[in-house]
């Protein structure tokens, strides 16, 4: 299976679902930071695993902090929310308040980052489950700090054959702070087939 099966229509639909999901996430997020969260237009790409690795290495060559959650239901996969080091620090500090805490995430800050990401990912995927009218269970979030290879560890993820990576790029920023994050979803091919089935079912309702 290649990325070809994920046609423009599916992309558009999934993109809009993510868009709605991120809209909900932004509400929770803005409550936490007490400020408006600016959202950009999401763009979604479906690429094979190796291409995704190269892509990510280009986008964020240094260290990344990724919060991972496993989703399981009608379709399943690993969802990630990525922040680079600077964004992670800015994000956590804008929530916990500024402090002279050095340039690394402490244990508490890591936990806070997990919670913020958890809220965004849950809002995002909860919305998709809502709209598609299917249940989607999620695991508790894990934080992986390191290079992109550490994040996309095939063995840990147990994602099976020919996984496809759906990368949703959407940045959210606060008026005075540049915090950008990126949501990605990695799914095995059979899971993608099931997702497409769900999308088709949904689209026939309206189109």
């Amino acid at each position: 299976m290649t990325s070809d099966i994920f046609t423009e229509d599916y992309c558009d639909t999934l993109c809009e679902l993510f868009n709605i999901g991120m809209g909900r996430a932004a509400v929770s997020f803005s409550e936490m930071v007490n400020d408006e969260v600016l959202l950009t237009v999401p763009s979604l790409k479906a690429v094979d695993f190796n291409t995704a690795m190269e892509l990510f290495q280009c986008i964020s060559p240094g260290n990344v902090n990724a919060v991972e959650q496993y989703f399981e239901g009608r379709f399943s996969g690993n969802a990630f929310l990525f922040f680079n080091d600077e964004s992670s620090l800015q994000l956590v500090r804008s929530i916990l308040g500024e402090g002279n805490w050095g340039s690394e995430l402490g244990e508490l800050e890591q936990e806070a980052l997990k919670e913020v990401s958890n809220i965004i990912l849950n809002a995002c995927f909860g919305c998709i489950a809502d709209v598609l009218d299917c249940e989607l269970e999620s695991s508790v979030p894990d934080l992986i700090c390191g290079e992109i290879n550490d994040v996309f560890d095939v063995e840990r993820m147990r994602i099976g054959e020919n996984p496809l990576v759906l990368t949703l790029s959407m940045s959210f920023s606060l008026p005075n702070k540049k915090i950008t994050g990126q949501v990605s979803l990695i799914m095995a091919s059979d899971s993608i087939k099931r997702l497409i089935t769900e999308l088709e079912r949904f689209m026939t309702l309206y189109v």
Binding site: S28, L96, K114, E115, I119, E137, P141
Partner: peptide, 20 residues
Amino acid sequence: KRAIEQATNYGMSSILSSAL
């Protein structure tokens, strides 16, 4: 409330960190 709802309605897990 949201965390509990997400768990009971959708099966989604949440973390409520000690920092927040």
